[in-house]
Write a protein that binds this DNA or RNA. Structure first.
Lengths: 183, 183
DNA sequence: ATCTCTATATATCAGTTCGCTATATTCTGA
DNA sequence: TCAGAATATAGCGAACTGATATATAGAGAT
């Protein structure tokens, strides 16, 4: 699955321009899929040449013109075919967790600050997703709830286990200070 | 943070070749960071030209030769400097959750199968990470535990809420069958 | 009043990264 | 005996991100 399929998916929920597709991705898919303008616009061009989407130019007063895309029959078929395959495995990239692995190289205060922020972010995500769960279809509630469950578990884990990395950082710091004093 | 920093991090735990770096990433960082050979080898070359790592050629009987890399003083400084900055936000890409958003376009049996597999995978991840938590430093236990907490929460959520998407798929299917029968 | 920031809208480009392939040897299990 | 996995490095096309360019308009700050 790539950005092209994702665009087909968003368009299956209603016609949209590239800009609007990005906004809807942020609404519905953020937290588990991102796509930049740099990938969306070329994706739409290619989908058009492949005949999977149609495009209509819409002139707007006081705004740049829009290219409003809509799914073709072939596009809908391609979307269903793609979704019927096995989804690729999740890909996660967390610089925060990499940093935590090397907590002993960091000042204890920095580690504590990173964890504080992280818990804050997670709690904001929980609030955000809980709001979304009240809107939308059951399927959208399902994915929002999935995200919420994970952020809640993460925040709880961080509260209960932060001592593990914080004490590592503190111990390493004491060792460093002692080495520094010995110079 | 990019693959270059990640290589510095792995090398701070001990000298290694590109191949070994990949293996150690799979051991310690998989579940929250991936890197392919196609990014690791060029990263090491560039780190060497920048003077952040050193390289020694090691001839092996019955195996291809190794290039064993080690951190330089500059390299260690660069790693600490990078880790002291603010980590970038997590990036997640889950094709599974995208598919769940469009459950109404899929056969109910397919949705059920996807969720079954997903729960299985999560449970295997939990076992795998629980094993790792028994080994390693407190910092490594911390990140493994973080992963485990999330997979556990995800599996539990799926069990308890799968009916949301499964009923959507079933309803859509009934509608389709009725439309088909009306032809 | 002016000025910056945000929003709307599309597009391109350099730099990163992934997945695949090539190359070569050895060991393991069917 | 023969395919596949493991060890080891390297290159390449395709995908994607983040930044930048271009243009207009409204909101809020100073």
């Amino acid at each position: 699955m790539d950005v092209r399929t994702l665009c087909l998916g968003v368009l299956s929920l209603g016609d949209a321009s590239g800009y609007e597709i990005k906004k809807r991705l942020e609404d519905v898919f953020s937290h588990f899929y991102d796509a930049s303008f740099g990938s969306i616009y070329p994706a739409l061009s290619r989908l058009q040449t492949e005949g999977l989407v149609q495009c209509e130019h819409e002139q707007q007063a006081k705004r740049p013109d829009k290219k409003v895309y809509s799914l073709t029959t072939d596009g809908r078929l391609a979307l269903v075919r793609e979704l019927n395959g096995q989804p690729g495995r999740d890909r996660v990239r967390s610089e925060f967790l990499v940093a935590m692995c090397f907590a002993d190289l960091l000042p204890a205060a920095h580690v504590a600050q990173l964890i504080d922020r992280r818990i804050d972010e997670h709690q904001r995500s929980v609030t955000d997703l809980a709001e979304r769960e009240r809107r939308g279809t059951p399927a959208h509630r399902f994915v929002s709830g999935y995200g919420r469950a994970l952020y809640e578990a993460a925040a709880k884990y961080l509260e209960e286990n932060r001592y593990l990395v914080e004490s590592e950082a503190l111990l390493a710091q004491v060792d460093n200070d002692r080495a520094g004093a010995a110079d």
